[in-house]
Design a protein around this nucleic acid. Sequence first.
DNA 1: GAATGCGGTAACCCGGCGGTTACCGCATTT
DNA 2: AAATGCGGTAACCGCCGGGTTACCGCATTC
Lengths: 123, 123
Amino acid sequence: MGLPLRKSKVAPPPGCPLSEVLTLLRGAWAPNVIWQLSGEPRRFGELRHDIPRISARVLSARLRELESRGLVTRRVLDTSPPSAEYSLTPLGRELLPAIDALAGVGRKLIAEWETYGRLVRAR
Amino acid sequence: MGLPLRKSKVAPPPGCPLSEVLTLLRGAWAPNVIWQLSGEPRRFGELRHDIPRISARVLSARLRELESRGLVTRRVLDTSPPSAEYSLTPLGRELLPAIDALAGVGRKLIAEWETYGRLVRAR
DNA sequence: GAATGCGGTAACCCGGCGGTTACCGCATTT
DNA sequence: AAATGCGGTAACCGCCGGGTTACCGCATTC
């Protein structure tokens, strides 16, 4: 016989908060950009240089996304040719511990995959 | 004059760990699936029911992904028609604190967006 | 015997994301 | 005068991720 459905006890949506913040990290290169900004402010060209395979198009997109969500500030420098400097806002910095936590799990995942031969094929 | 390039001081890649774990969370509905599994084990139909708009195709894909990475176990129950039960592995459970941290930031983000009228348009 | 519910899988299709290329104005360099 | 570097943007384009639909075998229910 089939089993009766058990109703979920956890809150209906994970709350959008998780999804919201994941949309920010989901775009290509987003984590790398944030990571690069975790230290000193960096200019567009520096970011391009430090994330070698990123395209200007996407870098620009990511930065403007993050800026519009209040995680990153853009400051135009009075140089010529004009250059721009990006840095994390305090709000943006709050992501760092969470990112560290994720990275920690990532390390464990990788270690585990290596010890017990990798069954991983998918993806 | 243009500024001289400053070289990045942070490790070249964020280490793949972050990227690795984000690939797991990046697929549609992945966070919701994990969240639902954070309590008791759940069956396929229950998951479909509790994540109303997910399609069977994607639910199946996410579960097999997570299983192949060692985050989820699948147990076939001896009932008829046969049913399957999914639960988080210990490794999978390690994600939960990190996810909580992200959700925490998510809540702050949302709060902030609401207090200071939302400039958010993108995405 | 037909319909229903279980746990999926296969095929099709469409939109959007991201890579590539070309181009912008401006100031310095050659 | 031409080329270079800065910080981008616009247009084009291909791919694949996810939604939709159809279908599977099996056992119980009507």
